[in-house]
Simulated assay, not measured.
Amino acid sequence: MSNNEFKVNNHNYRIIKNEDENLLFHVPSSALYELDKEGTSLLKRVENRNLCKEDFYSEDLQMLEKLNVIGDEEPNEYIEVKNFPATTLILNIASGCNLSCTYCYKADLETLKNSGNMSFDTALQAIKRLYEGAPNQKLYNITFFGGEPLSNFELIKDVTMYATQFFKQRGANVDFTITTNATLLTKEIISFLKKYQFGITISIDGPKAIHDKTRLTNSGAGSYEMVRKKVELLLSMYKERQIGARVTLTRGITQVDEIWDHLFNELHFSEVGFAPATASDNAVFNLSEKELLEVFKGFKKLGEKYIEAALKGEFNGFSNLHRVIGDIHAGRKKNFHVVQE
């Protein structure tokens, strides 16, 4: 084989640079391969079609051919999926909220006084349809969402008890999760969540000065102090599962490391996940390209801390990277936004 006889399949790989280290990301399998200096040099010669005679006998070139980075394109084998069971049900149980977060994406959100709540009959029918669409599975998930879902806590109780028996009678288990702003938490509610071992995510945007810029009560006051007190109560009572914080980053907010430090080291959340605002209908809250670069620099810093902690057998709670690593390990494919510096 000569330099003119092989094909380079550029769409099958990407080079990821990390300081003085290069990694090859294999697109078809979502696998990562470390490239030493010889491997990096070989790949450049491949791309430039400037291979020497010795290269054609190297193990590295054989590996690139095995990965289909070079060589004739392997045909895609499509497998018809006839049964793809959806086992998660998201119940939007409340259209109202006791906060008025400035960046909220729900244009139809009402105050609690004027809100409409899901009925038990609607929830019951949704659970039955979930099972009918994916019968005989071992585990199902029901997520309570809103508005503020805890404003309809009576329905949460009724649905949880009903669903537990419903799936038990069918030889299955059901897991419950909830995303809440924490403001309506009480000892009674926390005890109920403990009993059924809910997965809990708290919407909180960082320390007081940052959180109170956008997460306001209906009267226009900052909600941080109220949220902090409820979080402290929750974390003191709830040890059954890890509790995560979900942070929304809006225009002008790029202090990723400061936010993580406060939520992980001061408030003691088990995980902290960040969601940059980039596609809101109200563009005033979207992060600019420059701000996204600052956020990604912060993510890189947290990623380095993640690695340092992992080498010590510890977890630093940076859930964005933790989930990406899990996806890569499992071979799950996702689209990621790329910003060029």
Rank of each mutant, 00 (worst) to 15 (best):
S2L: 13
S2E: 15
S2Q: 11
N3V: 03
F6D: 00
K7F: 14
N9D: 04
N12G: 01
Y13W: 10
R14H: 09
I15M: 06
I16K: 00
D20A: 06
L23R: 03
H26A: 00
P28L: 07
S29N: 05
L32I: 09
L35M: 15
E38T: 07
E38A: 12
T40L: 12
T40N: 12
S41C: 10
L43D: 09
R45A: 03
V46Q: 06
V46Y: 06
N50P: 01
E54H: 12
S58N: 02
L61I: 05
M63A: 13
K66W: 07
L67A: 02
N68G: 11
V69W: 02
V69D: 00
I70M: 01
G71I: 01
D72L: 14
E73I: 11
E74T: 14
I79A: 14
V81E: 14
K82E: 15
N83G: 04
F84P: 00
F84R: 09
T88N: 10
L89W: 02
G96R: 13
L99V: 08
L99C: 06
C104P: 04
A107G: 09
D108Q: 08
L109N: 12
N114V: 04
S115W: 09
F120L: 14
T122I: 15
A123P: 06
I127C: 15
I127L: 14
R129L: 12
R129A: 08
L130K: 05
E132R: 13
E132D: 15
A134W: 10
L139A: 09
T143V: 12
G146R: 03
N152W: 01
M161D: 14
G171R: 08
A172H: 04
V174P: 03
V174M: 05
F176C: 00
A182I: 05
T186S: 15
E188W: 02
I190T: 09
F192P: 10
K195P: 00
Q197P: 02
Q197V: 12
F198R: 03
G199C: 02
T201S: 11
S203Q: 04
I204A: 00
D205M: 10
P207V: 13
K213P: 02
R215W: 03
L216G: 04
S219C: 10
S219Y: 13
G222F: 05
M226A: 15
R228W: 06
K229S: 13
K230V: 06
V231L: 09
E232S: 10
Y238F: 13
Y238K: 07
R241A: 03
R241S: 06
V247K: 01
T248M: 07
R251I: 08
I253G: 03
I253H: 07
T254V: 15
Q255F: 04
Q255V: 02
V256E: 01
I259F: 11
D261M: 07
N265C: 08
G273V: 09
A275I: 15
P276C: 06
A277H: 07
T278D: 00
A279M: 12
V284L: 13
F285I: 05
F285M: 05
N286E: 02
N286Y: 08
S288E: 14
K290W: 06
L292I: 09
K297A: 06
G298F: 04
K300D: 11
K305R: 15
A309S: 08
A309L: 07
G313W: 05
F318A: 02
N320L: 01
L321S: 01
H322Y: 14
R323N: 05
G326W: 02
K333E: 05
K333I: 08
V338N: 03
V339H: 09
Q340E: 15
Q340H: 11
E341D: 14
